[in-house]
């Protein structure tokens, strides 16, 4: 039992590509709840898509930058262009994000950003890289 719970811990976090193994643990769901509060091992942060908080923060900044009303829905898959941003707005958004997260985006990668999710993924990568460098 102890070993079962231990291996369930690895999958307790919502991962986009749900491993087939987690299905076999569905009967133990009640037990798993307790483990969600445990710190997640660092290696799982790398393979996960962008964190929820990052996406939310990006959405807020995009909304502010484009002066969108509260009734406009901005989510992870929103394209800047569909939100009414031209290429100059996109540059401004990326600059705003750089400042908010204290990172520096390379010219080449900055130009490939088209959606909120692209931006969030890139930010998470850069923040993780910066953390790794400083520690």
């Amino acid at each position: 039992m102890a070993s079962l719970a231990g291996s369930a811990l690895s999958f307790a976090r919502p991962v986009k590509a749900i491993n087939i193994k987690s299905v076999s643990f569905s009967g133990l769901r009640k037990d798993n709840v307790a483990f969600r509060l445990q710190p997640v091992p660092q290696r799982f942060a790398v393979c996960c898509p962008a964190k929820k908080e990052t996406v939310d923060q990006v959405c807020d900044i995009v909304k502010k930058q484009l002066a969108l009303g509260d009734n406009t829905e901005v989510c992870g898959s929103s394209k800047f262009q569909d939100l009414g941003a031209d290429s100059l707005d996109t540059v401004e958004i990326v600059m705003g994000l750089e400042e908010a997260f204290g990172i520096s985006v390379e010219e080449s990668s900055a130009q490939s950003i088209a959606t909120v999710e692209d931006a969030a993924n890139l930010i998470d990568d850069l923040v993780a890289a910066a953390d790794a460098k400083s520690s």
Binding site: K79, Q81, S87, L88, V91, E92, V94, M95, E107, A110, Q111, A114
Partner: peptide, 21 residues
């Protein structure tokens, strides 16, 4: 879909980025 940017457009955006920086 986002059209591919031409070289001259990229230059203009890079310049804009430079100014904001």
């Amino acid at each position: 879909s986002r059209p591919k940017l031409s070289g001259i457009q990229k230059q203009a955006l890079a310049l804009y980025r430079g100014f904001l920086r």
